[in-house]
């Protein structure tokens, strides 16, 4: 899987690159409009992370160029501007997602994998790890082909954790993903623990090959047993 990061802030680009390499992606980068345009025209990528404000031009023009070239690369816009206008223009021009800075690494991961799934598995929207199989369209969970009923939040937590398997998922990131971003100001997000506790118990009782571990006040990590 080849990913292109178009981002003028080299430090941010570097962090994203390191994170993506952990997921075994092949990462390339461009830090200004013209080099980005060159790469976009010359190569094919599975996913492009695109900053809108670039030295030398707008990321939206790169999107336009992709559209003109009839390329079907997946594009996720990463912008400092939470602007509805940019978002709509971007999605209109064929972007697949829009992520506002600052974001959590786990969130970026989840978004990238979501657009890749749409492309790669012929429309089959499933994630699998060990004997755990989640169907994201039907919202069903199979453990060793045995169905297990989860409530909405448990299902969302598990999906997010599976997508970010073996990675430390920050609890804020998890709370924002599952409970929506309304939950800020909420006491260090300790409240998410009760749902996680229930989920852990269900996974264990049904012999799942994964476990959600707590990481010292930071968040959680899904490990394969």
């Amino acid at each position: 899987m080849k990913i292109l990061i178009i981002e003028d802030e080299t430090e941010l680009m570097e962090v994203i690159r390191q994170s993506l390499e952990k997921e075994n992606f092949l990462v390339e980068s461009a830090s200004d409009f013209h080099s980005a345009l060159d790469k976009v025209i010359s190569f094919d990528y599975d996913c492009i992370l695109l900053d809108i404000m670039l030295p030398g031009g707008s990321g939206l023009d790169i999107l336009q160029e992709l559209k003109n070239l009839d390329k079907s690369d997946n594009v996720i816009i990463i912008s400092a501007k939470d602007s509805l206008e940019d978002k709509l223009t971007g999605l209109d021009l064929g972007a697949d997602d829009y992520l506002t800075k600052p974001f959590h690494i786990a969130e970026l991961n989840a978004r990238i994998k979501s657009v890749l799934r749409r492309k790669s598995f012929g429309g089959k929207n499933t994630v699998e790890v060990a004997n755990v199989k989640l169907d994201l369209d039907d919202r069903t969970l199979l453990i060793s082909n045995e169905p297990l009923i989860l409530n909405r939040k448990e299902f969302d937590i598990l999906t997010y954790m599976v997508v970010n398997k073996n990675r430390l998922v920050n609890k804020t990131s998890l709370a924002e993903r599952v409970w929506g971003d309304h939950m800020d100001e909420a006491d260090d997000y300790e409240f998410i623990y009760s749902q996680i506790k229930n989920l852990r118990k269900k996974l264990k009782d049904h012999g799942a090959g994964v476990e959600i571990q707590a990481v010292y006040g930071l968040g959680y990590k899904l490990v394969i047993l």
């Binding site: 430090e11 962090v15 994170s19 506002t100 800075k101 930071l218």
Partner: peptide
């Protein structure tokens, strides 16, 4: 937004390093 993104993401990567002990993780978490 961008400096915040860099700081948070760098720290998140840092917490994933193997040789971190509990005290360090707590501090980074804070």
């Amino acid at each position: 937004q961008t400096p915040l993104a860099i700081s948070i993401n760098k720290l998140e990567l840092l917490t994933e390093k193997e040789d971190m002990d509990e005290a360090n993780l707590m501090a980074i978490g804070q």
